[in-house]
Design a binder for these strands. Sequence first.
DNA 1: ACTGATATATAACGATGGTATGGTACCCCG
DNA 2: CGGGGTACCATACCATCGTTATATATCAGT
Lengths: 222, 222
Amino acid sequence: MVRTMLIEAAARLLGEEGPAALTSRRLAAEIGSSTMAVFSRFKNMAEVRRAVRQEAFARLDERLDELPVSDDPVADLAAAGAVFNAFGLASPHLYRAMFLDPPAEEDGLGAGTFDRLVTLIRRCIAAGRFPDAPESQVPVWAAQLWSMRHGLVVMTVAELLPDEQARFVLDDMTFRLLVGYGDDPVRARRSIEQGNRVAAAAESIANGEPDEVRRSRKRAPG
Amino acid sequence: MVRTMLIEAAARLLGEEGPAALTSRRLAAEIGSSTMAVFSRFKNMAEVRRAVRQEAFARLDERLDELPVSDDPVADLAAAGAVFNAFGLASPHLYRAMFLDPPAEEDGLGAGTFDRLVTLIRRCIAAGRFPDAPESQVPVWAAQLWSMRHGLVVMTVAELLPDEQARFVLDDMTFRLLVGYGDDPVRARRSIEQGNRVAAAAESIANGEPDEVRRSRKRAPG
DNA sequence: ACTGATATATAACGATGGTATGGTACCCCG
DNA sequence: CGGGGTACCATACCATCGTTATATATCAGT
């Protein structure tokens, strides 16, 4: 299908060369056609960019859905956060397009991703990790975790914060928030570490690394 | 000075009509001149936008510096956060330009604002509100508070989060982080409320509201 | 093979960022 | 008061952008 070819080419252009590279002519040339191939399928370039964002959200959701569901929901929550973070840092242009470029009009494109976060929090509450948490707190905490990660990724991408600090800042902030939500500090710390491990493993799989690489990473090198 | 006229016109165009309105011809027409008036003073439009961002940071810093220094540094910190938040919501296009538009290259334009945050945190530690806080934690916490607010403003501006929730989410997250940093919950809550009052008063002054609106809360401790 | 429809290439339009050219107005100095 | 240099700016121009009109090629169904 030409349409999917266009979307994939557009995502690649945007992801690898930035928004300036995503022009109608360039995109048409990328699939060996003329601009009409673009405009006969999309009303305008804005719609192309929207399709790319939709594709990017689908990829992020896919990554999140690949994460295993364990019996430690807080670790699952932390893993989702790490995946979110890694996604943003690995594809800054795409991340930018997903969360920063969209015009003021709400198009509800990130709603599914937000819902996944809500579900993760609900599981934490159901498991008794956040005692005394009323249902009304769920969307509030989801927004907190989301904006915390979002802000951190944006700061890192904008180079307001060195990359090596970002991970530590994220973990520390996550820890303090989880404790603030009522989780036990020791369990929270352990869940965050476990979540990071799971996310790193999922990242390896997503990147198609061979099994030996993943296995050797878990063992002591040697 | 024509240059300042251009910067102010550019800031107004960007702030009121968005980035699409900030074109060389439009900007030239705005000061009753031609595009050469722009390009003889700025290398290109990117430099114009940079100057606008610089101007916007200066305005934000000005707002922050107008805040009184009280004997409750945590309240001062909360007030700065509220001012930051209000600034972003009041001028979404400017906010966007300041933190989201800048290309990947670091230009250190927000460094001064970040330093103000660091100073506020240091005062909290000096006042004993965050016991057992090593110096190394200061930039980490500054990044946490910054990214927390940043993410929240971005989410609000992008309408991923309803405006009315944003304030509550911010206060709640600030509270939990402050407690996580070691502050006493009761004092933290009080400081946040006090900070919000101070910020609202400063906002009134900045907006040129009559004295009686703010005289009631002018009671500085000490 | 012919007809009709569909998709595409070509080329054009208006607007953009940016530049070259040339004139003008101003200011400093005699 | 006047002359000359300089800084500024209006105009016109270029390449490129998004987008569209028109002509052409391709393909399906008889």
